[in-house]
Write a protein that binds this DNA or RNA. Structure first.
Lengths: 232, 232
DNA sequence: GCGGGTTCGGTGACCAAGTCACCAACGCTT
DNA sequence: AAGCGTTGGTGACTTGGTCACCGAACCCGC
């Protein structure tokens, strides 16, 4: 990328990250010149076990799905990194830590700022604001995992599926995902998804089509999703 | 604690932490003088939701149990911090982050080095080795949680219980824990623990007594525990 | 040492969820 | 149009979680 175009984007991208907006001018410049903006198509492996990364990614556009590759062959969904968030797990690879078995894949086309190890280290040393940004990102992931564990242990599948459908639909009304994919998202079997979706359909909350679902009654789903732990 | 006794301990405690042994002399001194050694009895709440901590704990002796307080009242065990490890989750409280709902309790009497926020920040800024120590600790917790999730989702209860009993027994042959406690350790119900333990007893792997279990055939337990995902 | 309350463990019935085996419907390629 | 891989549906069965309830062991004050 030529310097002109680069400069143009540099003026804007930092504002996408709340925690970085308070960076003093010199640090901001160091971050801009010491990093690069990269784009990868949907489906790209961002990181994977045994394939050490050496850059911290800050997502500008798109989403990255982080999954645990299980020995059994089945995968479990762990979390999703959205635009405006950083993929701190790559720092674990940067440390060449004992191999964790998580992998990150671009779900959509992804544009991101890649901060090389050296720049990262330099910024952590120099800037309290940058430090806070990084530690906050770590803490958020950890607490998200806490919530996930709580969900897995205590929440009923139908409640979790309803919530997930609403989340995946976003503003639209259709979710493109096979039953198998929804199964790994929630850490359950395809059959369970099929059965639960049939039930949702019977209640006229959704319509099913091959490879996806159309939400026809968000209220019904929302009501179930929010029933939380209060015994359906 | 008077300065003489303090100096005596300072000479030794850093060696308990692998990642810190490579600290250069000046950093080491800053760490020693900028922190204090504290002792608390078993049962002490180390951190809890809404009660912001301002110190990073490095455990010298004892163990800390970290649990998720669920809305439903039931708790889930998340992980255990052992001597020689740090309780990085407290840094999340240090950031006064949105309230996570985990709490840490001293399982035994605990002796630890408490690093105040300011010293922590200073050391992270100054020392690459200290930075690596902290990031490694974070990454380890995250990958541990990945493994935990994998376990919860895919592993059978009897396998998990056998593994946990061996772990809790350590070198000894008895585990002091009620069925209810074992239940929260594994995120399951007391009844399930009772049933599974009865089965273990029937196979003469354990003897039960009120408030605990005595392992009488570690091999049997170990064999089951290691059968992992290979379909008992 | 004796009630009386509390904690701990056991049990049966039932429901939710995961597993297994198998098949039917769809859509893509050739 | 035939063949094949992907997707979804289903029934039978096992495992795990929930609920309600009970009895035995322990603790405590008297």
């Amino acid at each position: 990328m030529d310097q002109g175009a680069r400069q143009l984007m540099d003026d804007t991208w930092i504002t996408k990250f709340r925690g970085l907006s308070r960076l003093p001018e010199d640090i901001r410049r160091a971050l801009e010149t010491g990093s690069e903006i990269i784009s990868v198509p949907a489906g790209t492996q961002i990181f994977a076990p045994g394939q050490p990364a050496d850059k911290l990614w800050l997502l500008l556009d798109g989403t990255v799905k982080v999954q645990q590759k299980s020995e059994t062959g089945r995968d479990v969904f762990l979390y999703r990194v959205h635009a405006g968030e950083s993929c701190v797990l790559t720092t674990a690879n940067m440390l060449a830590l004992e191999d964790h078995s998580a992998e990150g894949t671009a779900e959509t086309a992804v544009r991101a700022v890649a901060i090389p190890r050296q720049t990262f280290d330099d910024l952590v040393a120099r800037s309290p604001v940058f430090r806070e940004f990084v530690f906050t990102a770590y803490s958020k992931r950890i607490t998200d995992l806490f919530v996930l564990i709580d969900d897995i242990v205590f929440q009923r599948m139908d409640v979790r599926l309803a919530a997930r459908l609403l989340e995946l639909a976003g503003d639209g009304d259709t979710v493109r995902a096979t039953h198998a994919v929804l199964g790994t998202e929630l850490g359950t079997a395809r059959e369970v998804i099929s059965r639960t979706l049939s039930e949702f359909q019977r209640r006229n909350w959704i319509e099913q089509f091959r490879g996806g679902v159309r939400l026809t009654n968000r209220e019904g789903l929302r009501h179930l999703a929010q029933s939380a732990a209060s015994h359906s």
